[in-house]
Write a protein that binds this DNA or RNA. Structure first.
Length: 408
DNA sequence: CACGTTACGGTTGAG
DNA sequence: TACTCAACCGTAACG
């Protein structure tokens, strides 16, 4: 264990210098800091929007770089570790990814917490979620539960009322349960049923009194989709990625996590591998299997070879998000600061100017460029840089995301 | 000291 | 359009 710790620390150290020089080189190559930041912002916003259709028209919490964006600047708070966060909003994907990557390198959560200046509870939560779902991404925020009184339920209520105009709302409720139309979780309240009877069915009972004698008996209500199905994100909200088989109903019961949303895909591995395959017929399919064979459940941090190599099966939980195959973060691409600035617990409202730009990855810290405000605070400014996992992938990634790459 | 859990104050977005 | 409410968030504190 201690060996691993030593090794990973050394590796990390080497990697830091490697990436720092690489990032600095890139920054020089793109010109002014302004253009760099703007490019990063564009890239990051696009990527996040692609990852989460619910944010498609609205960027995630944006840590706008002061003076680089005409939009309203975001403000953050400083936690006890000196990291900047926005209350109520998820950490940027870059940070989330870093957490997972560092854990994969065998770095202890407490150390990750300190390095990234994220509370240990948050680190714990993100790692636990990653272990469970394979995704680093936050859950879907906001929205409402699906309505209980679905058209199917209303239809059945109508049927009951037609068959027995004198039926009470509570009896309807019982029958909905008994017939399997609803379960205890999505059973409408008596008041809801009354409201349906009043508003949606109206004079039906009266009408059916006249007609019931003539009508053929209604077929018994067919048990319909259980609530779980309803409560899980409706499949209509889960666009099936191109080339991905549509999930069978029982699969949709779970929160589907398309692999397009996995760390692997966020990092662009699939794109890379696919590209390699298409570009090079000789690319062994075993390579792909290699990726996919690495099961997330074999997550022991010190053992699992690559966080980025952990590909998610297509049927993993969490269907809320979609992501383009190139849902690539620029995680590995932020300029590191040689030293972590001291924690200044002055005000609780600071502008995370030098922070990670926005949502996904790319964030730039350190002395490369200083904001006009002179704020030394950099959210999650840390001295850990790129994971080892993708060292060999960077060239390919650059090709895939020229904008992102050029910004760094 | 490390870490899992939870209360809290906050944001978000469908209904 | 404004509001509600239940989902989520990360932090801080506790054990």
């Amino acid at each position: 264990m201690s060996n691993f710790w030593t090794n990973s620390s050394a590796a990390l150290s080497n990697l830091e210098s490697l990436l720092e020089s690489r990032a600095n080189q890139r920054l020089r190559s793109v010109g002014s800091p302004t253009s760099s930041f703007q490019q990063i912002e564009m890239t990051v916003d696009t990527l996040d929007a692609e990852q989460d259709p619910r944010r498609r028209h609205k960027p995630d919490t944006v840590f706008f770089v002061c003076g680089f964006n005409t939009m309203e600047p975001a403000f953050g708070e400083v936690n006890q570790l000196g990291g900047v966060f926005v209350n109520g909003r998820p950490l940027p994907n870059a940070i989330r990814l870093r957490i997972v990557e560092l854990a994969q390198l065998g770095i202890r959560p407490c150390d990750i917490s300190r390095q990234l200046r994220v509370s240990h509870g948050c680190v714990s939560k993100i790692l636990a979620r990653y272990n469970e779902t394979g995704s680093i991404l936050p859950g879907a925020i906001g929205g409402s539960k699906p309505r209980v009184t679905t058209p199917t339920v209303v239809k059945h209520i109508r049927t009951y009322k037609q068959r027995d105009p004198g039926i009470f709302a509570w009896e309807i409720r019982d029958r909905l349960l008994a017939d399997g139309v609803c379960d205890k979780f999505n059973l409408p309240s008596v008041s809801s049923i009354s409201r349906i009877l009043r508003n949606k069915i109206g004079n039906l009972s009266q009408q059916s009194q006249y007609e019931s004698g003539k009508q053929a008996p209604h077929p018994p209500p067919q048990p319909t989709i259980p609530y779980n199905h309803l409560y899980s994100y409706p499949t209509s909200k889960v666009p099936t990625p191109p080339g991905m088989p549509t999930l069978p109903g029982h699969m949709a019961m779970h929160r589907i996590w398309p692999s397009s949303h996995s760390v692997t895909d966020i990092l662009g591995i699939r794109s890379i591998t696919e590209q390699q395959i298409s570009d090079s017929p000789s690319f062994s399919s075993a390579k792909l299997e290699e990726w996919s064979a690495i099961n997330r459940t074999n997550f022991p941090p010190a053992i699992s070879p690559l966080v980025n190599g952990v590909d998610k099966p297509h049927l993993e939980p969490e269907a809320k998000y979609t992501q383009t195959p190139n849902g690539l973060p620029t995680v590995n691409s932020y300029v590191t600061a040689p030293n972590i600035p001291p924690y200044h617990p002055h005000t609780t409202q600071v502008s995370p100017y030098m922070g990670y730009s926005a949502t996904t990855s790319a964030y730039v810290t350190g002395p490369t460029w200083q904001p006009a405000s002179g704020s030394a605070l950099s959210p999650h400014n840390c001295d850990i840089t790129t994971p080892l996992a993708f060292k060999s992938m960077t060239a390919n990634r650059d090709a895939i995301h020229p904008v992102t790459a050029s910004a760094l």
